[in-house]
Simulated scan of single mutants.
Amino acid sequence: MKAFIIDHYKSKDGGRIAEMPEPELHDEEVLVKVRAAGVNLLDVKIRDGEFKLILPYRLPLILGNDVAGVIVRAGSRVQGFKVGDEVYARPDKDRIGTFAEFIAVNEADLAIKPLALTMEEAAAVPLVALTAWQALVEIAELKKGQKVFIQAGSGGVGTIAIQLAKHLGAIVATTTSTANIDWVKQLGANIVIDYKKEDFEAKLQNYDVVLNSQDAKTLEKSLRVLKPGGKLISISGPPDPAFAKEIGAGWLVKLVMSILSYRIRKKAKGHGISYSFLFMRASGSQLKEITSLINSGIIRPVMDKVFPFESTKEAMAYVENGRAKGKVVVKVS
């Protein structure tokens, strides 16, 4: 099968399309013919080796963390899905590789594709929607009337997180560029800060939750907009000891993560705030909840561009430059 692979981390060619063997199918997995695959900043970071300490992939590696497609084969223990089902998923972190003609996915990570979405639209959903769900529903336990600050409102995670937070009844603040202010308001943001002209720290106070996706400087500034008892959730790091425990890391990795996050954890504790690092996990059951919200018209994916499979490298470069408005997708077949 054709697949987009990297032979080495930080390789000069940025990845290439090559012939690879079809994935081996385990009893609890289905083989999905990939129609479309979402492109995420995570793919860029994996390509550049930023996660090799916690995600020790074997090279050459097929990239890709979002998929929409059709089941063409099912393992002997699969019960909830059948050949011909149109499905979508964020495969488990140990079984990525959606930039390919086929991928094997555990049925526990799958959901039936939302009826109203095209394959390209469906491929734009899983990783960012699961990130938003796990941050706002699972960790933050966001409630009606609470105030949440979601950074980068026009990005992939931001566009879904704003809609989800609004559905949960929260008061939503976000940052974006001048050109996108009215647009993110239409998604449900109550307060929109032009990051090129305004400092969010000067405008926001006593927030219950911050979803951080930016750099270390922004992370520390975020502490100062939260009220005591507030929750700072970061999807851009640094990873903390709780995450090391979650992935079953060895003592050395635990030590490294403890050191990397020591400063922010200490500062958060001094403000009476909890700090959590979120590296979203695959979950078919949560994706089904999200599907219901999509089918009800409560959440809609926001698409920027669709690239042909042959231009996967260009799609990743487009995501890396940080200008995407919503999600970028590769059409595979």
Rank of each mutant, 00 (worst) to 15 (best):
residue 1 M to C: 08
residue 4 F to I: 00
residue 5 I to F: 09
residue 5 I to W: 02
residue 6 I to T: 07
residue 13 D to P: 07
residue 17 I to S: 11
residue 22 E to F: 10
residue 23 P to F: 05
residue 24 E to T: 11
residue 26 H to C: 10
residue 26 H to E: 13
residue 29 E to R: 00
residue 38 G to D: 06
residue 39 V to L: 06
residue 40 N to S: 07
residue 45 K to Y: 15
residue 46 I to V: 12
residue 48 D to E: 13
residue 49 G to H: 04
residue 53 L to E: 13
residue 53 L to A: 03
residue 60 P to V: 02
residue 62 I to W: 11
residue 66 D to P: 02
residue 71 I to P: 15
residue 82 K to R: 10
residue 87 V to L: 12
residue 91 P to V: 00
residue 94 D to W: 04
residue 95 R to W: 10
residue 101 E to T: 03
residue 103 I to K: 10
residue 106 N to L: 04
residue 108 A to D: 08
residue 110 L to M: 04
residue 113 K to F: 14
residue 121 E to L: 13
residue 123 A to L: 14
residue 124 A to W: 11
residue 128 V to R: 13
residue 130 L to Y: 15
residue 134 Q to D: 14
residue 138 E to C: 02
residue 144 K to Q: 14
residue 148 V to R: 15
residue 153 G to H: 06
residue 154 S to L: 09
residue 158 G to V: 03
residue 161 A to V: 03
residue 165 A to G: 08
residue 168 L to W: 00
residue 169 G to S: 08
residue 178 T to P: 10
residue 180 N to P: 04
residue 181 I to A: 10
residue 183 W to K: 14
residue 187 L to D: 11
residue 193 I to H: 13
residue 195 Y to S: 07
residue 197 K to F: 01
residue 199 D to S: 14
residue 199 D to W: 06
residue 202 A to G: 00
residue 206 N to S: 09
residue 210 V to S: 03
residue 214 Q to S: 09
residue 222 S to K: 06
residue 224 R to C: 00
residue 236 S to G: 15
residue 237 G to R: 05
residue 239 P to Y: 04
residue 241 P to E: 04
residue 244 A to C: 06
residue 254 K to S: 08
residue 262 Y to C: 11
residue 262 Y to Q: 09
residue 262 Y to A: 14
residue 271 H to N: 08
residue 272 G to H: 05
residue 273 I to T: 04
residue 277 F to L: 14
residue 280 M to F: 12
residue 282 A to S: 15
residue 286 Q to L: 00
residue 286 Q to G: 01
residue 288 K to S: 15
residue 289 E to I: 11
residue 294 I to E: 04
residue 305 K to P: 10
residue 308 P to E: 14
residue 312 T to L: 04
residue 313 K to W: 03
residue 315 A to D: 04
residue 318 Y to Q: 13
residue 318 Y to G: 11
residue 319 V to H: 02
residue 319 V to D: 05
residue 322 G to N: 08
residue 323 R to Y: 07
residue 325 K to F: 06
residue 325 K to D: 02
residue 331 K to F: 02
residue 331 K to V: 07
residue 331 K to M: 07
